[in-house]
Design a protein around this nucleic acid. Structure first.
Lengths: 250, 250
DNA sequence: TAGTGGTCTAGACCACTTC
DNA sequence: AAGTGGTCTAGACCACTAG
């Protein structure tokens, strides 16, 4: 493992500016391996001891890096088995990325019906949110999602086409983040949602089977890949008469 | 420090059932001290070394307990200075408990105008949410809150009266969690919010100066004290035409 | 039984704040 | 200079899983 400053050859930290703990440098390396696909979603990592000796670092330093990444839901650790790159299975989606819960009854994964899927040049607003330029293309999807057979939300999803090369518009799975990671090695690890209450317009009203003007919960989500690139913009319009958005504050 | 099982006298963990790491027992003790008021909000804790020798535990074990509590925003650590019980100053409220953000412009702390404050017997729904029984009393507050002079939300707050003994209905401060901790030693550390989109009724419409039926964001929050007791139920009806609820998913 | 992560300890040194 | 938290190391042992 190299020094943590830019110029010295020992382990002594430099001045206040630019100091970065060793375990964070280790974490950066691990995240880079995930971003590059060296470690794919669901795959097991080498053991702490192996990683430590590979990097010429103590096991405790490797552990601290792995613990941080586990706390951020990038890795999953299982005592006695090993450390794995967190995969986007339905359980993780429900736990981390799907906050719409039935008022009574258990959390469930919604069905999806795709109503539109196209590849086209990005609109200005999409370029803005996704950090695209000029003539960059996006994949745009619209779909309606149901819980227990009842439509609960309609959403529009936009992702940069170059991050998902050769994506087949025809076959959009229910679990998109699983597709991103399994097929394109793009691992979504973080998202930010902005929520508003809005009145249903004609399209939402028709798709959800409610009158125009019905209050809907609008969820505007931007999702980032492990390497920090914005990878998807999604706006969901949700019926909340029998569901709610669950947010834990701590 | 005692053993971590219930019956043995050494440090050897027992069977799988009932095993609890030493650092969690240490954390439990620390949380108890906060709940009892031994360590009040804003107060500095003894140093890691002092705590370790007091409990006959290594510094590393104390550190792990303190780190966990810091991650949960119960403590604040400042290198070179010490470890403090997190106080409910405006900065913490904004960071942890107030998620309504202007669409453009910086996050700010809202003003409040109390429109009603009474002490009365708890309603059945309130007993249910707050874990009260029989003739337990509550303090109920209604207020309107503004950002930049514009009313953005109206909320109803209900708290068990016995947790806030002798609370003066007359003087309700803007920052309620600060009052709870400073005056009654009740430290709120966690909350859960359920969000829905609803139509403004006559009262909300009048208080917020919008037509009836305007979509509002309803935030139903239950807040817990450090000892796990539900300490406040709050329902906020928010105008989201120029603000949004910010939720980070990771 | 072997190998993994999880806990606990002890000690050295660094970064930061205060006096 | 002294005291705090932060980092890094090394080693022992425990809990859990799998063969």
């Amino acid at each position: 493992m190299a020094d943590r400053t830019s110029s010295e050859d020992d382990r002594r930290p430099g001045r206040t500016v630019g100091f970065r703990p060793l375990y964070r440098q280790v974490r950066d390396m691990f995240e880079q391996r995930i971003a590059e696909g060296t470690w794919a979603a669901g795959q097991i990592l080498p053991s702490e001891m192996q990683l430590a000796s590979e990097l010429s670092v103590s096991q405790g330093t490797v552990r601290k890096a792995l613990d941080e990444m586990t706390a951020d839901n990038i890795l999953v650790r299982r005592q006695g088995r090993g450390t794995y790159v967190a995969s986007h299975d339905e359980k993780r989606i429900l736990f981390q990325f799907f906050k719409l819960t039935p008022d009574d009854g258990p959390l469930r994964f919604p069905d999806s019906v795709v109503t539109e899927a196209v590849r086209r040049v990005a609109l200005p607003s999409e370029r803005d949110r996704l950090g695209l330029t000029g003539t960059d293309e996006v994949v745009a999807i619209e779909r309606t999602r149901s819980l227990s057979g009842e439509p609960v939300l309609v959403e529009r999803i936009v992702a940069p086409a170059d991050a998902l090369p050769g994506i087949e518009i025809g076959e959009i799975p229910n679990n998109l983040y699983g597709l991103y990671s399994e097929r394109y090695g793009v691992v979504v690890v973080r998202a930010q949602e902005k929520l508003k209450a809005v009145a249903a317009g004609p399209r939402e009203a028709a798709a959800l089977g409610v009158p125009e003007g019905t209050p809907l919960l609008a969820i505007d989500r931007l999702a980032w890949s492990v390497d920090g690139r914005p990878i998807e913009w999604r706006v969901s319009m949700c019926l909340t008469d029998r569901h709610h958005y669950l947010s834990d504050l701590k």
